[in-house]
Design a protein around this nucleic acid. Structure first.
Lengths: 187, 187
DNA sequence: ACCTGAACACCGTTCAAGT
DNA sequence: ACCTGAACACCGTTCAAGT
């Protein structure tokens, strides 16, 4: 009985969650599946495409938010959900960051943000700026948090006293203030 | 005649600029210096510390901006200089992102942003939120731009029509609107 | 102060061939 | 449809020993 593409993907996510991104090698993944490394290349053309599929899986459960909410609350909700999704998996932010940078990820969650801003009355340009600022904040700050956590676990850094949840909330509130101001002034 | 720590650092930056981060291996760096890989470990305890030193070098030329400028113009200036510094070297943003995430980088440029915001009358908390939002935008968006450029160079992606300079300017303007609003309302 | 030699324990990827 | 076998061209790091 052979493995399906989905078996590979699921096992990869398990390794990621248990041991982190640095320990997710094609060779180790193959071993976990009871198969030779070369077998993986029947399911995915290369490691990058596997990582992209994993990133899409991690962000896949983030919803668009309710259209009945106020537009700014909706952005807040999507951003918070996105952050929670990244935090749910070890090194989730780094994974998504790599996928985003490579441009291969289908980042529907970014579109949710743009849509919410546009429904709030922002121009296309302002809506896009909001999306960009929010996405970079979520991914970048969460990546810092998870990398820090990983280093503390190894003992390569002493525990810091930073409160990432508050830093995130403050940064998001600042951006939303900017977005509301843009809406008020027309453009 | 032996190599100094500075020779190693300078050669590493040359390789980075000419071939990108993926091609910067300890073995290749050693070859370029005419030395065995193990020799590098006399100068740096490991690769990560070399990368951190490189990141500090890349951001080292970014100044604090003039204290005589308006606070928001000053933030704009520092952020723009930072972006320019990252763009000056191949994969500069990814390098700095890794250093920042690891927490080993001495990121004085972040302090310039916080200081400027505080001088503008923002609370410590708002000043910090401004710094966070700006830093994540600069690093994240520039990383996207450079990764995309690298992939187009290899032929792994067709040229996109995105205008990163405009995206950056718009995102920064939005954040600064938020910061100015915070100042006006007191907190 | 700076480097060699030799080793250890790994990587991603290709491709003909097998079932 | 899915996998093996074997190979290619690499990695970072350690450590005793050399000059």
């Amino acid at each position: 009985m052979g493995n399906s593409r989905d078996d590979v993907l699921r096992t990869a996510l398990e390794i990621l969650h248990r041991y982190g991104l640095a320990d997710l090698s094609m060779r180790r993944l193959a071993a976990e599946l009871g198969v030779r490394p070369s077998a993986l290349y029947w399911h995915f053309p290369n490691k990058q495409s596997l990582l992209t599929a994993m990133a899409d899986e991690v962000l896949g459960r983030v919803g668009p938010g309710s259209a009945r909410m106020r537009w700014d609350h909706r952005i807040e909700r999507v951003a918070t959900d996105m952050r929670a999704a990244l935090l749910r998996v070890t090194d989730g932010a780094e994974l998504v960051s790599a996928g985003q940078a490579s441009g291969l990820s289908t980042t529907t969650v970014g579109d949710y943000l743009t849509d919410a801003a546009r429904h709030g009355g922002l121009s296309d340009r302002d809506a896009n700026a909001t999306r960009t600022a929010v996405c970079q904040l979520v991914i970048g700050l969460t990546m810092e948090q998870q990398t820090r956590a990983q280093m503390e676990r190894i003992g390569a850094a002493e525990p810091s006293d930073r409160d990432f949840d508050t830093e995130f909330a403050d940064g998001l509130a600042l951006i939303l203030d900017g977005a509301r101001h843009r809406r008020a002034t027309g453009h």
